[in-house]
Design a protein around this nucleic acid. Structure first.
Lengths: 207, 207
DNA sequence: AAAGTATGTCACTATTTGGTGACTACAAAA
DNA sequence: TTTTGTAGTCACCAAATAGTGACATACTTT
């Protein structure tokens, strides 16, 4: 044990333990006993400091940022060029590229997404709502500029959802629909597919 | 209890109980005790008749067909017209339409898919492998005819994965990326999006 | 130095889990 | 009628679960 009498550190150990367990085994094995054991801390402290497991999970989710990092890209947007179709096209590709790398690389995010799929509670509801708000942001921007929201919104939804599901599948499957989702080459092909869709759509606009 | 001395019926009660629980609460609450209680049968019979919960789940999965119903469409394919691009285009749309309605309507399938995402065991591995084999079938057919497998495979993968994830999300979310995935209208927009992608791609081939 | 507060330890309960052995009740074969 | 096999019941076990109350040990304030 750790009789160090450092509340902050103990709390952090618990929060970190949540992340460790989620990364290693997913969220289904998470519980008061498991987390306490992983953190090498008495489980009663979970109740004292966080009011229970829910509070601890909330604290965990608050510390990490589990929505996609679209904010960074938003900051880089050159507003003056938004009227330029070619710029919009490249911007779209960049956003999708960011989504793909984030979804593929962030194992913790993958587990959270699966958690959101499996069970809904206050926490997962909040996470999902935040994600939806952020995620729809770029689409709104794009549709405003293009002025054809009705058409492009579902397209983006399909593509983002597709990348997400492929990433989740890649946790335990090597292939999806013939595409190798466990290799860099496979994911390069997927990204080429995304770019192809973007190109096709923007070319259809140019006509 | 049910002292009816009918082994077959008792086994079926257990299998049905699995389906009931999965539909109602998903797979996470599934266990020997839960299933036995739902079936109103002693849990020891699960061990006697199925060798344990795994065997019961296997029997359950065997009874239902959890891969997508591409077989039906395959049977309808008019081989003679496969050289016709317009026919291929419509066929692709039909396949996607079938996938969408199946994914959206079959709640049991949704739960199985989530189960495959969450935990892997002999059963879920088998289910996933079957699905991959069947799912990749149409893509193979299409790519053979088009002769550009490298390009079209990832496109289909993205789109199928997208529809799947949207369906899974619709279990607990009302919107995804601004699209209403809890209404028929929203799903019509998604289907229009799918058709749009197909059209764009085939038009690009025609050039 | 004494008192009080807060951190961490331990022991305990009650419930649920997967799993097993011993039993009864029935039905068909001998 | 007796024997034998099997469908179903019941009682139990060990382990793990969430949660609580009592205690000791430290640190801080007075």
């Amino acid at each position: 044990m750790a009789p160090q009498r450092d509340k902050e550190q103990t709390m952090q150990r618990l929060i970190d333990a949540v992340g460790t367990i989620i990364c290693r085994e997913g969220f289904r094995n998470i519980g008061v006993n498991t987390v306490a054991k992983e953190a090498d801390v008495d489980k009663v402290l979970i109740y004292r400091y966080f009011g229970g497991l829910d509070g601890l999970l909330k604290a965990y989710a608050y510390q990490k940022d589990f929505w996609l990092n679209v904010d960074k890209l938003f900051g880089q947007i050159d507003s003056a060029r938004l009227a330029d179709m070619n710029y919009l096209r490249e911007l779209t590709k960049q956003i999708l590229h960011g989504q793909l790398t984030e979804m593929r690389g962030n194992k913790e995010l993958q587990e959270i997404l699966i958690w959101e799929l499996v069970e809904r509670n206050n926490l997962t509801n909040q996470l999902a709502a935040d994600r939806e708000e952020k995620g729809a942001g770029f689409t709104r921007l794009l549709t405003e500029k293009l002025g054809i929201a009705q058409e492009v919104e579902p397209l983006i939804a399909i593509v983002i959802a597709g990348v997400t599901y492929l990433a989740l599948r890649s946790r335990s499957d090597s292939h999806f629909n013939g595409v190798n989702i466990s290799s860099v080459e496979g994911w390069n092909r997927i990204e080429e597919g995304l770019n192809k869709i973007v190109d096709l759509y923007f070319e259809s606009l140019a006509k």
